[in-house]
Design a binder for these strands. Sequence first.
DNA 1: TGTACATCAGTGAACGCGCGTTCACTGATGTAC
DNA 2: TGTACATCAGTGAACGCGCGTTCACTGATGTAC
Lengths: 230, 230
Amino acid sequence: MEKPVLASTRSRVRAEITTELLKIARQHVAASGASSLSLRAVARDAGMVSSAIYRYFPSRDELLNALIIQGYEQLADAVEVGESAVRRNDLLGRHRAVANSLRAWARANPHDYALLYGTPVPGYVAPIDTVAQVLRVSAILTSIIVDALRLNRIAPATISKPMRSAIRMASVTVPEVPAEHLANGLLAWSSLFGLVSFEIFGHFHNVVDDFDVFFAFEVDRIANAVVGIS
Amino acid sequence: MEKPVLASTRSRVRAEITTELLKIARQHVAASGASSLSLRAVARDAGMVSSAIYRYFPSRDELLNALIIQGYEQLADAVEVGESAVRRNDLLGRHRAVANSLRAWARANPHDYALLYGTPVPGYVAPIDTVAQVLRVSAILTSIIVDALRLNRIAPATISKPMRSAIRMASVTVPEVPAEHLANGLLAWSSLFGLVSFEIFGHFHNVVDDFDVFFAFEVDRIANAVVGIS
DNA sequence: TGTACATCAGTGAACGCGCGTTCACTGATGTAC
DNA sequence: TGTACATCAGTGAACGCGCGTTCACTGATGTAC
């Protein structure tokens, strides 16, 4: 018998079941948050005996980790789709699309958002696997800045020497963007998440009436600070 | 016997023990986060039998709630102390003081910060008791804007009509500040928390080297947007 | 192609755990007359 | 001032729960010769 080109039945079934388990786990997170996620409950919903799930995830932490990675993936997908639909030269529009996609995803999946950007799971340390997906998300904002520079839409800024070295690591991760504009980008980035977190976590309750309008307004302020008066 | 002016021994002891229990609970939160807080463990550390704690808190949720209120209180205290040390006319300095106090408190009490501004406890709905303390914190930033207006340090801005009505509730809560400047204040406020959350929750890991410098830099950008070029 | 063995998925029972909460109780503190 | 009763703090046992994880097992699928 020749070496099978396709994966064996066994490994295909395995992949399918793994996907299915993750899907169920995701529903549990959506329903009641990550902190109460239980391997037993997931196994139960999958029609498995509780110990069987250990064939797929060696521990609860590993399941959570898989969920986190998948969360970043889905978020990155959503943001990429949103941003890529905008004409390349429309920098403000691209920034808006990023912001709106992020917010829409967070509103549609509040517990997943909380899993990624809320209180870290106690004892959990993000493994290296997550980095790639996180970078995907931030790369999108980066690309807007890069294009703004290329199109001469933003003026060169200056930052102090201490500040330059305070974000040296960022410059290593994202070498295309000069430090002066990275400083802007990082503020824009965290401000955006500040807005979304406040909305999702309820801190704008009794403060904001119309979140759509409010968000659009504030996002444009952020955008103006980062891609200038383009 | 005349009506006792001082509280009875019993009620004084009760208050002391309640305080002590909260202190222990706070330590538990500091050590391992709110999600794993257990009434039994707190009772144990207090040298009580597990059921005795029900004389003080009717349920775990009530304990958590008390912790949340106390958290807002302590945060408000910290920010008030920091801000009040600055000369009244130094608006930028006051804004810096607010930001630095917030961040210092969050760094000193990361789990408390997470309890207040991270993932909401599932099923938990902030009771009205918390509102007063939350307002204390935001009132400080508000006072800076009010003073900036009084001192003519910020120019009148304009906002669209939809935006004005989108934050009508905020205008009710904080009537002293015109909506145009509230729009700025809300962004500044949530941006500040975005920065702090990203730092505390580890999203600037491998991005920022020197958080003190970075934070100071970005906070000044925020301040410039809210109290202008004062 | 057929047999012998190895791998793997899933079973079912069990372990030990800590949790929130209830309940009937004891004994100390406070109150009314 | 002294007695009788009411209030309250704390005890100890118990309830029922669901959890993560381990382990020896069965039976099906895959692999080597």
